[in-house]
Amino acid sequence: MFSALITIIRRDLLVAFRRRAELMNPILFYVIVVTLFPLGVSPDKEFLSQLAPGVVWVTALLAALISMESIFRQDFDDGSVEQLFLSQHPPTVLILGKVIAHWLITGLPMLIIVPLMALLLYIPQQAIPTLFITVLIGTPILSLIGAIGVALTAGLRGGGVLLGLLVLPLYIPVLIFASGAVSAAITGLPYSGHVALLGAGLILALILAPLAISASLKISMS
């Protein structure tokens, strides 16, 4: 079982690394959107650092949403989705592997640009560790929930907008607790409660999402 998980993660990472140029896209998109806010709102230090948690996490939601499409797009086109369900290993394990691989490609790189974001948005030093933790715990939840939406809308035209309509409302709790944690850290308040709730959300998503994704894929394939 576990070996199948590792196998499909290695396969998807190998496929992704074959198109190395595209690996940077989610991060570049993220940085660009973050720079839009000071331009659009105001570069004032006090104002920006108060706005920063919301900016960071709204952008994370949008970046996750836009990069979600690629998780099943290729599998539907080349017909390897069907093979998932013929395997000796349960489809939920293989699907979990695919989501982990997708997170490693699109979610984890966000950690690299956390210091840059903190710089751009005047996030004080002591809040950066919290930013790291919330990104580390929050982005996998976004990938897991987003994958349910992609599994439902995979074969449809207008998938991107439809995906947003389906998935963004479900992202709201992650947005609330993650940005809440960061703003608490900025103002020096305790943020362990928020992080704990995010952790609980992650465990819930890890258990339930693969089942929902597997059922959704069966629906889209029928």
């Binding site: 190998l14 074959r18 290729q74 086109d77 080349d78 017909g79 069907e82 093979q83 013929l86």
Partner: peptide, 12 residues
């Protein structure tokens, strides 16, 4: 099962 698409990953 072999469908119309052969289930072959193009980037491998």
């Amino acid at each position: 099962y072999i469908g119309h698409a052969s289930g072959v990953k193009l980037d491998l």
